[in-house]
Design a protein around this nucleic acid. Structure first.
Length: 262
DNA sequence: TGCTCTCTAAACAGGT
DNA sequence: AACCTGTTTAGAGAGC
């Protein structure tokens, strides 16, 4: 898409394209369900008048919920950046969130084509270039740009009870980041290592009569949740950033992101 | 340069 | 016995 065409894109088209892109990236997740609900509400707002937000939004208690808040849970400086969207422009994210970053703005060493290649060569096992839009379902040869603590955080937050056994954490990661389907099994060791060592995660008692097989249930320590959320915010191309755009779309009919200096 | 964080590998114990 | 889970230690690399 060239700059002129992008400038002519309407709010509605922009949001639709964003929803489509995110739904492909995270199919069947609570995130995806939330996007569909948002889209439906936008299409037929009258039909949603009687519903409370909590009824509509499966992410109301998840790590993605803060996107709707005028003030996030993190420190004041961070909040200012997020609500003003200046952080998006600073990190040149707006272009890339649109799904078709201008590759000419990307250094030669980090150019990637749509098959997950850099300069025509496969990048299997390499960390995804930070300034290329990351689609975990598409870039299956690029190691996701998320730390294991972030992956575990997202997995637990995406579960209905906000607690998961380690096996389900594996499954969530495998489902949402197919890269790990063909990765050496050492990553599971890293997940367990992270759960065990990271203060952000703690074991919870199983409910009486609850059978989850072997192992414990793991949850997020509320005291450390803001730390994890902040780590996610700092990760380029995390859906948090993209949802921030969805929740707070620019009020103008045209977008200046395509002409921002790189 | 030193510190912190993260990842990776490995060993080991205990449970299923 | 084999496998899974959880803990611990160690080393390397990146970033500040």
């Amino acid at each position: 898409m060239d700059s002129n065409k992008r400038l002519e894109e309407s709010d509605e088209d922009f949001r639709k394209r964003l929803v489509d892109s995110l739904s492909q990236s995270f199919p069947d997740s609570a995130l995806s369900k939330m996007l569909k609900i948002c889209n439906a509400a936008n299409s037929a707002p009258d039909s949603c008048d009687e519903l409370e937000l909590g009824d509509l939004d499966p992410l109301a208690k998840s790590c993605f919920a803060e996107i709707r808040l005028d003030k996030g849970p993190i420190d004041e400086d961070d909040d200012d950046d997020l609500t003003s969207l200046a952080w998006l422009q600073d990190s040149n994210l707006l272009k890339d969130i649109a799904g078709e970053a201008d590759l000419e703005d990307i250094p030669e060493t980090q150019k990637e084509n749509k098959e997950g290649e850099v300069n025509g060569k496969e990048v299997s096992g390499q960390v995804h270039p930070p300034n290329v839009p990351y689609n975990p379902q598409k870039h299956v040869n690029s190691k996701p740009p998320y730390s294991f603590s972030c992956l575990i955080f997202m997995a637990i937050e995406d579960s209905p009870q906000k607690r998961l056994p380690v096996k389900d954490i594996y499954n969530w990661i495998l489902t949402h980041f197919p890269y790990y389907q063909n990765a050496p099994t050492g990553w599971k060791n890293s997940v367990r290592h992270n759960l065990s060592l990271n203060k952000c995660f703690k074991k919870v008692e199983k409910e009486r009569g609850q059978s989850i097989g072997k192992g414990s249930l793991w949850c997020i320590d509320p005291d450390y949740r803001p730390n994890l959320l902040q780590a996610l915010r700092k990760t380029p191309y995390h859906p948090y950033h993209q949802l921030q755009m969805l929740a707070n779309p620019p009020v103008t009919q045209t977008y200046s992101y395509s002409v921002l200096p790189g």
